[in-house]
């Protein structure tokens, strides 16, 4: 019994303790010249889809959800964002070689077609980030056109 009590207190202390350790967060007020939307002429509706459903993890600026204030959620989010940006960072689009752009566009198409992106763990809370069939079509048609013109 005593051990159990100690454990509970230890866990509580740990949980409280980690609340004071915070990742710095993914924030940038500056949208660089290399940004996807500056390099390409993106129609308004596609811009909206990208901003809402992709940019949180695939750019240098995240609009954080409320649960980012609770640890260890902030760490988990930070990892996701780090991975996301490594795969594809829309802010750095202009720096990619055309070969790489072509690869990325193809991956975007495949991921969205297969409903692999946006991640279901993300859309679970960000309901507005979930793509409707119509949004999917709008996005895919436009990205395919961009890819063919590359």
């Amino acid at each position: 019994m005593k051990v159990l009590k100690i454990t509970i207190w230890a866990v509580l202390a740990l949980l409280v303790g980690i609340q004071f350790i915070r990742p710095t967060g993914n924030h940038s007020d500056l949208v660089p010249k290399t940004d996807f939307m500056k390099v390409n002429e993106v129609p308004q509706n596609v811009k909206g889809i990208l901003k809402t459903s992709c940019y949180d993890c695939h750019s240098n600026n995240t609009e954080y959800p409320w649960y980012n204030s609770i640890q260890p959620m902030a760490w988990i989010l930070e990892n996701h964002i780090e991975d996301g940006k490594e795969e594809l960072n829309f802010n750095q689009w202009g720096e990619y070689s055309s070969r790489r752009k072509n690869s990325k566009l193809k991956s975007i198409i495949n991921q969205v077609e297969d409903d692999a992106m946006p991640l279901s763990s993300y859309t679970l809370i960000h309901r507005d980030a979930k793509l409707s069939e119509a949004e999917k079509k709008t996005l895919l048609d436009w990205v395919s056109k961009l890819k063919d013109g590359l």
Binding site: L14, I18, N79
Partner: peptide, 9 residues
């Protein structure tokens, strides 16, 4: 859990 959340890739 804390470790998997923190350990970088």
């Amino acid at each position: 859990i804390t470790f998997t959340a923190t350990s970088c890739k």
